Measured scan of single mutants.
Amino acid sequence: SIKEIEKEEIIKVLKEVNFNKKLASEILGIPLRTLYKRLKEYGI
């Protein structure tokens, strides 16, 4: 599903940037606030 793909992509990017959420949100092209929402939604 799209949610699974998105979750995997978020985890992959977070690992690449050593869990720097600000940098991860910039790489993913989403606002930091949205990233936090996704992390909560996906239980990351």
Rank of each mutant, 00 (worst) to 15 (best):
E8M: 14
V17Q: 05
I11T: 06
N18C: 09
F19E: 03
L39N: 01
E9G: 10
E9T: 14
V13N: 01
V13G: 02
A24P: 00
T34F: 07
L14T: 01
I11R: 06
S1K: 05
K40R: 14
L32K: 02
P31G: 08
V17A: 10
K3V: 11
K40E: 13
E41A: 08
G29P: 01
T34P: 02
I27F: 06
L28H: 01
K21I: 15
K7D: 06
A24D: 00
K12S: 09
K12G: 06
Y42V: 05
I27P: 00
P31W: 04
K12Q: 10
F19N: 09
L23P: 01
N18K: 11
I27Q: 07
I2R: 06
I27E: 03
L39M: 15
E4D: 14
I11S: 04
K7H: 06
L14V: 03
I10G: 00
E26F: 13
S25D: 00
I44F: 10
R38L: 15
L39Y: 02
I11E: 07
N18L: 08
N20A: 04
I5N: 13
I10T: 09
K37P: 01
I5W: 14
L39Q: 01
K15Y: 10
K21M: 15
R38K: 15
E9R: 15
I30D: 00
I10N: 01
R38S: 05
L39S: 02
I5P: 12
K15W: 11
L32D: 01
G29C: 04
G29A: 06
L39K: 01
P31A: 11
K7S: 05
I11P: 01
K15H: 11
L39R: 01
K7V: 10
G43Y: 06
E41Q: 10
K37T: 08
K15S: 09
E8R: 13
E6Y: 09
K15T: 12
L35T: 00
N18H: 10
L35V: 02
I44P: 04
G43S: 07
S1N: 14
K40H: 13
I44Y: 10
G43P: 03
E41C: 06
I27G: 02
I10C: 04
R38H: 11
I10W: 03
K3G: 12
K40T: 08
K7E: 05
V17R: 02
L39D: 00
E16W: 10
K3N: 14
G43C: 09
I5T: 13
Y36D: 08
K22M: 10
I27H: 05
E8C: 10
V17S: 08
E6P: 09
Y42A: 05
T34Q: 12
L14W: 04
I5V: 12
E16Y: 12
K21Q: 07
I27Y: 06
N20T: 02
K21E: 06
Y36W: 09
E6R: 10
R38N: 05
L23Y: 06
V13R: 03
L14R: 00
V17D: 00
E6V: 08
F19C: 07
K15L: 12
E41G: 05
K15N: 11
K12A: 12
K21G: 07
L28G: 00
G29N: 09
V17N: 08
E16P: 01
E16D: 11
E41I: 07
L32G: 02
G43R: 06
E26R: 13
V17T: 10
I44E: 04
L28A: 01
L14P: 00
Y42F: 13
Y36Q: 12
E26A: 13
K7G: 05
S25N: 01
L39E: 01
E26S: 11
I2W: 11
I44A: 05
R33M: 11
L28F: 03
T34N: 06
G43N: 10
I11F: 10
K37H: 09
I27S: 04
G43A: 08
K22V: 12
K15P: 01
K40Q: 12
K21F: 15
I30P: 00
E6G: 12
E4M: 08
L28N: 00
S25H: 03
K15M: 12
K3Y: 10
S25I: 03
P31L: 05
R38V: 13
N20W: 05
S1Q: 13
K3Q: 12
Y36K: 15
K3A: 13
P31E: 09
Y42E: 04
E4Y: 09
E41S: 06
R33L: 12
K40A: 12
I30H: 01
R33T: 12
E6D: 11
E41N: 05
A24H: 00
L14D: 00
E16T: 12
G43K: 07
K21H: 14
K3W: 12
S1M: 09
I44D: 04
R38A: 12
E16C: 11
L23G: 03
S25T: 04
I30G: 00
V13I: 12
G43F: 08
T34D: 14
K37V: 08
S25K: 02
N18W: 07
K22T: 08
K40L: 13
I30E: 01
I5C: 08
L39W: 03
K3F: 11
G29V: 03
E6S: 14
E4R: 07
L14K: 00
N18M: 10
L39I: 14
K22S: 08
K40F: 11
L32M: 08
I10L: 13
N18Y: 08
L32C: 05
N18R: 10
S25R: 02
I27C: 04
I10Y: 05
S25Q: 02
R33D: 14
E9S: 12
V17I: 04
Y36E: 15
L39V: 04
I10D: 01
A24N: 00
N20K: 04
R38G: 02
L14H: 01
T34M: 12
K3D: 12
E8Y: 13
A24C: 06
P31Q: 06
K15I: 13
L39A: 02
L32R: 03
K7W: 09
A24I: 02
E16R: 14
R38Q: 09
L23N: 04
E6L: 11
L35I: 03
E16M: 15
I2F: 08
S1P: 13
I2V: 13
P31K: 08
L28D: 00
N20H: 06
S25L: 02
S25C: 07
I10S: 02
G29L: 04
K15R: 14
E41W: 06
